[in-house]
Amino acid sequence: MSRARPDTKTTSPLRSGSSTGAGDRVFRGLSRGAGIALLGIMAAIAAFLLIRGLSAIQGDSANFLTEQRWAPKDDPPTFGIAAIAFGTVLSSLIAMALAVPVAVGVALFISHYAPRRIAIPLGYVIDLLAAVPSVVYGLWGIRFLVPRLEPLHQWLGAHLGFIPLFEKSAAGSRTMLTAGVVLAIMILPIIAAVSREVFLQVPRDHEEAALALGATRWEMIRAAVLPFGRPGVISAAMLGLGRALGETVAVAMVLSPRNVISLHILNPEGNTIAANIANSFGEADDFARDALIASGLVLFVITLIVNASARLIVARRREFAGAAI
């Protein structure tokens, strides 16, 4: 293991020095052990979710992938992830559609519009959004936002109801749309923070060249900033998507759940994997808990794929990695 790696900042002569002393061997072994322990934890997470989840899926009387209902305590147990997986994706897509344009605007404002002196404090203020715990967003969502979005729901239903997406056939505003709004607020800071870092790395020369040719500020941004920042913004959006997919309590508190596949985002129906776990856990027996673990396994796999693709895009542009917390 004493191979030197040329691409790290620590230069190789330091590393190749033979660590012969007993103290060195112990310390090195300890730190290596910690790294291996971390890998072990990841392996254990995958293994335990798989073992408990698969045993539950075997006891399922319906097709786990296509069944919409979630009734593991029925006899025979009938449960599937079709409706909740659909709801997870739908709520996250609503959140993305709302959050990404605003977050890119925020990032542009901080990186290219605001005066330098106030840009950094403004960045901190947006980061504060990320420090608010999700349960507080949930409380604010259900107590403050839900009643205030009621008129919007009725207006959209009355005027745009001919579009299937906006068809409103049941009263109430504890809907997928409201859940999407809360999720959008929660993922906005991460998208804005990563995009801001990328926009700040646009080479000065490109911007000045565009301005020298007579471009307005917006033309400069379109010609120099946005093309350079596109991969960074995409990976930022996917990091946000990963967060939105796994968010639990805020959705569980805001959404009025009903396990059906439905595109009617103005109706109080639909459910997400994470919210279903939080809502059903209280009265679950041992088998029902295993069933919930099986749904958690699906969520784990979905977020893994989304996050890994985001990381791959980031890895191609190594310099963005610093911002991706």
Binding site: M42, I45, R289, I293
Partner: peptide, 17 residues
């Protein structure tokens, strides 16, 4: 990096299982 993206509910499910 992968661990950073684990949803908190999945961490709870792991400890539960």
């Amino acid at each position: 990096d992968v661990m950073t993206g684990i949803p908190s509910i999945v961490a709870g499910l792991f400890v539960l299982s």
